[in-house]
Design a protein around this nucleic acid. Structure first.
Length: 579
RNA sequence: GGAGGCGUGGUGUAGUCGGCCUAACACGCAUGCCUGUCACGCAUGAGAUCACGGGUUCGAAUCCCGUCGCCUCCGCCA
């Protein structure tokens, strides 16, 4: 006898009168004394089993409890008139069992899968296998599977090779903290888990693989967020002999493909903004295009106003709040919001049918206020919130106000608002290390026109780096790579790495590039984030089967954990006493 | 590293600004009744050192101090 001949949701009216066997978990048991209903759940849905005391399987069915695993063989019967349940796929029929086999008993679970959404997440993580029984989570993993299936088809069709790269690699400087793995065979040395397969995929390009992709697990030892886990999955891609335009267009096609295959959604062409434009228009390198119109740059106009403080501000940026009449208290809250983020304050200008009101009315005359309002395309009923300050602060704070306003007022437009952000700065200043560091990674190609600035004005050098942003969340990041050793050495030298450090840390890459490196570039998408957004989920934990808590622990396995001192001895490791 | 929120039977909550709290309600669980339910219904019952430690007090779930855990955000995340 087989455990199952049909899935629960496939038992429909067309099978009326036939014998079927279904298997699954007992979702609910309704005991009417003389009549027992049991809903059996499998991955596809639920089916109702009904038995009366004369029936063969009544005694067994009487003993089943929530989450028992059963196999039920019986006749499919149409439900009586008026007893149809249209909420479930099998709702027109029910099974009259001739045999019920209890395959597994269950203790009373700490929570029922169907009520899990309201249960404390710590409890759910501890009993993750029960949490995963609920259909909404299951659907996320079905979506994830469709995305991966679509991805692999796409890459295969376009001549990409799926190549695995090592998980035990070498610690490299720059970037996130590495997770370290001590070597037993080489005492005192450590592997690092990859933050990305970056160097390996570039070596594959040197090897002539031409087109590589990998669904790669990567690791970063940094603090967690709702959209950040210490281990996550990247769609890692690298291509040779393709210019930036070809790479962007192929990757955009890939994203469109998975949305079409997995969600049935046809995406529009992604708009493009340079990093500079994104900062000026949205105060962010990952603009949320759902949050209304761009910021308005009032810097040049402010130069000529009579109020010295505004006229001398290096940058003046406005957020247009359409049809918004904030109270005094709300305006104070916006001012506080701006101050908390480092701005010196906030000016507001309100336009109505009978004139202009402003917090700056004391220092600016009516004409000046009207000019500002007109320049910001203010209509009666609109409010303009203005931040002044240095760049990028003024733009960033204004951008955060734009976002927060849209969230608070429920003005986020629905839809999938993708864009490319390009030409990021090649370097950024690290306050902590007091030196220039790579904004992306040290193998990023500078924009050709900016080569000459590398030594004279490195902060102004733009890079051939690009991000994919969806609804204000960074989904992917990539770049064209440097493939000429001389240019790579120039970059290392601007970063202040000595010859010794270069050869010690990146010698193998420099060496490889001396044997014929093709022009190449690539990108890496955060698979978990894509699936999270596609699923409408609020946290990566809803699309990762066994996620970590915000403190990086796994309540199910109770990891991380101390290890036996003998294990440490073998590794030559001695723990410092706790301070 | 910093800020905020939360922690009360198995689960979700109420109670928290000092006193009939001998901790309430719903779900779940157990037992009994019930032949058309699908969040079945009805009745009875079991189940809580109120996260942990210390303090104040005649008296603490409640006030104070500390610790731990979970969540969110800032820093951090090339």
């Amino acid at each position: 006898m087989s455990f199952r001949t049909e899935w629960a949701s496939q038992v429909t009216a067309t099978l009326t009168g036939t014998m079927v066997t279904i298997a699954g978990w007992v979702q609910r048991r309704r005991d009417h004394g003389g009549l027992i209903f049991v809903d059996v759940r499998d991955r596809t849905g639920i089916i109702q089993v009904v038995a009366d005391p004369k029936g063969a399987a009544f005694a067994t069915l009487d003993t089943v409890r929530a989450e028992y695993v059963v196999s039920v063989t019986g006749m499919v019967r149409r439900r009586p008139d008026g007893m149809v349940n249209l909420d479930i796929a099998s709702g027109e029929v029910e099974i009259v069992p001739s045999q019920v086999v209890i395959l597994s008993q269950s203790k009373t679970p700490p929570f029922m899968p169907q009520e899990a959404e309201t249960v404390d997440e710590l409890v759910r993580l501890k009993y993750r296998y029960l949490d995963l029984r609920r259909s909404s989570l299951l659907h996320n993993f079905e979506l994830r599977d469709r995305v991966l299936y679509s991805l692999r088809n796409f890459f295969h069709e376009h001549g990409f090779l799926d190549v695995e790269t090592p998980a035990l690699a070498r610690s490299t400087p720059e970037g996130a903290r590495d997770f370290l793995v001590p070597s037993r065979v080489q005492p005192g040395t450590f592997y690092a888990l990859p933050q990305s397969p970056q160097i390996f995929k570039q070596l594959l390009m040197v090897a002539g693989f031409e087109r590589y992709y990998q669904i790669a697990k990567v690791f970063r030892d940094e603090d967690l967020r709702a959209d950040r886990q210490p281990e996550f999955t990247q769609i890692d891609v690298e291509m040779s002999f393709m210019d930036r335009e070809e790479i962007l267009s192929l990757m955009e096609e890939m994203v469109k493909r998975i949305f079409k295959d997995a969600l049935g959604v046809a995406l529009q062409t992604f708009p493009r903004l340079s990093w500079e434009e994104a900062l000026h228009q949205y105060g962010s390198d990952k603009p949320d295009l759902r949050a209304g119109e761009p910021l308005v740059d009032l810097t040049s106009q402010a130069r000529s106003v009579s109020w010295e403080i505004l006229a001398s501000a290096p940058h003046v940026v406005g957020v247009i709040c359409r049809q918004y009449r904030p109270s005094r208290k709300m305006l104070e809250q916006w001012t506080e919001f701006a101050r908390e983020r480092g701005a010196s304050g906030l000016i507001w200008i309100m336009k109505s049918e009978d004139g202009i009101k402003s917090s700056a009315a004391k220092w600016l005359d009516g004409e000046e206020l009207l000019a500002l309002a007109t320049n910001a395309r203010l209509q009666p009923g609109d409010t303009l919130l203005v931040v002044a300050g240095p760049k990028p602060l003024a733009y960033v704070v204004a951008g955060q106000i734009r976002l927060e306003f849209a969230r608070q007022e429920n003005r986020l437009e629905p839809g999938w608002r993708f864009l490319w952000v390009t030409e990021f700065p090649l370097f950024e200043w690290s306050e902590e290390e007091e030196r220039l560091v790579s904004a992306h990674h040290p193998f990023t190609m500078p924009v050709a026109q900016d080569f000459e600035l590398l030594e004279s004005n490195p902060a102004a050098v733009r890079s051939e780096a690009y991000d994919v942003v969806l609804n204000g969340i960074e989904l992917a990041s990539g770049s064209l790579r440097i493939y000429r050793p001389d240019l790579q050495e120039r970059i290392f030298s601007v970063l202040g790495l000595t010859q010794d450090e270069i050869s010690e840390k990146f010698g193998f890459l420099i060496q490889a590039f001396q044997y014929g490196a093709p022009p190449h570039g690539g990108i890496a998408f955060g698979l978990d984030r894509i699936v999270m957004l596609m699923a409408g989920a609020k946290s990566l934990r809803e699309v990762i089967a066994f996620p970590k808590t915000a403190r990086g622990t796994d309540p199910l396995m109770d990891a991380p954990s101390p290890v036996d001192v003998r294990q440490l001895d073998e590794l030559g490791i001695q723990l410092k006493p706790k301070t």
